[in-house]
Amino acid sequence: MIVADKKPIEEIIEYLKGKQNILILGCNECVTVCEAGGKKEVGVLASALRMYFQNQGEDVKIDEVTLERQCDHEYLEEIRDRVDQYDAVVSLACGVGVQFMAEKYHSTHIYPGVNTCFLGATEERGLWTERCQACGQCILATTGGICPVSRCAKRLLNGPCGGSTTGKCEVKKGDEEIDCGWQLIVDRLQALDRLDEYETLCPVKDWSTDRAGGPRKVIREDLKQ
């Protein structure tokens, strides 16, 4: 899923200074699972903002809506008849939702309520970790199902580098400590009795399907109508 983290309330308050009618717009998908932008977080943010503005002696109306998704036309349509009454919408969806919202409702001021972080998994409640950088050319078949692009700090395709110690990457310490992606790959290849594959050179990668190639599209003529 797409993992996001809440923006500090102070930052959101800064965007909203002088606004009278505000909608806090949540999303029921990924940001709900990572507890950054679902119905609950919408409620908390809205309540905090209401109190903040009341305490400032300002009359600000703050509404709460959480859509099934903000990355689909049909769900975003649900707020069409009411969106014009707001002079600001804070979207707690990922960057995709915020932008899709902005594209759809041209005259509405949209502000992001979360920082979109990465594509990852829930390891445990309160801990999400990265797994994929959406490079567009999956090489997991050759690396035992562990991705060096997302799990090596240097995205080395023929790792590890010298910064791997007892299975950990030198780049982060303490609570932030991360596994050496290449240690994981080697361990996994060994467990699968495929360590000989380690010596196969990974050729220079075509990054044109990555961010480097510019904004990407997936086109499926077999599905298009």
């Binding site: 309330i9 908390v44 109190m51």
Partner: peptide
């Protein structure tokens, strides 16, 4: 703890 943090932030 979460509530305390929020209330501190918004000046309550």
């Amino acid at each position: 703890e979460q509530a305390r943090k929020i209330l501190d932030t918004i000046g309550i």
